[in-house]
């Protein structure tokens, strides 16, 4: 796989293996994402896109290989020849650099919008409540919901909840943001709002983004690289322009034809 010539990649998979029972989802996967890259993962259902993001968030455990964040071993490492788990204490240090937005938002329903956003900055980063609140208000402004600070999340529409979830993830100042089909649980007319917010983040920050989406137009706008997956392997990678207009691999052509309805 291509690697950045200038410096350590933000994300690197080395021979990562992931199985669910007998189902080998990732079989020695190798790829890396450079600092500040915006990478979109595409591929048919079940090809392992979500699994990759979940491994990066430590929501799944790999069965082999290494995952490196800024060159630091994250979940496992080799001690001599032995492949060993990295203890939670060390994982936490690295995990602070990674944030994730979920398809189903997963806001905490027992908290207000503000409480959702400041919970981790206060209890993980150790910010004062005042500083965290100031930052949260700024972020709510940024996602277009300045007046919803004290609302219960359950009173918000899906699109609003997702924007809060984005603000919540950003409040941790992640270096890497993982986005797994963040608009696919939303009504079509709201999708544009959320995509607009993400476009804005892509434009105004240098956060490394790894996203899975079926919104090809959006992928084209925000990402500078697209990886086509099939059966847990990268079959093709290119800049979005090339990938969407002139895919080389037959599997990619078929897949794009199916999703673009062309």
């Amino acid at each position: 796989m291509t690697n950045t010539s200038n410096g350590t990649p933000a994300i690197e998979f080395r021979d990562v293996v992931k199985r669910f029972g007998d189902n080998v989802v990732l079989d020695k996967l190798n790829f890396s994402v450079a600092q500040g890259d915006r990478v979109t993962l595409i591929g048919p259902s079940g090809s392992g896109k979500t699994t990759i993001l979940r491994l990066l968030m430590t929501l799944e455990e790999a069965n082999g290989g290494l995952i490196l964040i800024d060159g630091d071993p994250y979940t496992h490492e080799y001690k001599g020849d032995k492949w060993v788990e990295i203890p939670e204490k060390r994982r936490r240090v690295v995990r602070n650099r990674v944030g994730m937005v979920f398809q189903q938002f997963n806001l905490f329903p027992n908290m207000t919008v503000l409480e959702n956003i400041i919970e981790a900055p206060v209890h993980v980063l150790g910010l004062s409540k005042k500083d965290a609140t100031d930052r949260a208000e700024q972020l709510l402004e940024q996602v277009g919901m300045p007046d919803k600070r004290d609302a219960r999340c359950t009173q918000l529409s899906g699109g609003q909840q997702q924007r809060v979830a984005i603000a919540r993830a950003l409040a941790m100042d992640p270096e890497i943001l993982l986005l797994d089909e963040v608009t696919s649980a939303l009504d079509p007319e709201i999708v544009a709002d959320v995509l607009g917010v993400l476009r804005d983040i892509a434009r105004t920050t240098d956060i490394t983004m790894l996203l899975v989406t079926h919104e090809m137009q959006f992928a084209r706008e925000v990402s500078n690289r697209v990886l086509m997956f099939d059966h847990g392997q990268i079959v093709e990678e290119a800049d979005p322009e090339t990938m969407f207009t002139n895919p080389k691999h037959e599997r990619t052509q078929e897949f794009l034809k199916a999703v673009l309805g062309g």
Binding site: R95, L107, P109, A169
Partner: peptide, 29 residues
């Protein structure tokens, strides 16, 4: 829901804090 635990992990909340601030308030309800 499992998503609540996962969101807590994604925010790097410590285990004890996850119980206290996220899981138990919902469970007790």
């Amino acid at each position: 829901p499992k998503g609540q635990w996962e969101a807590a992990i994604a925010l790097n909340l410590p285990r004890a804090r996850t119980w206290r601030a996220v899981v138990l308030p919902q469970a007790i309800r």
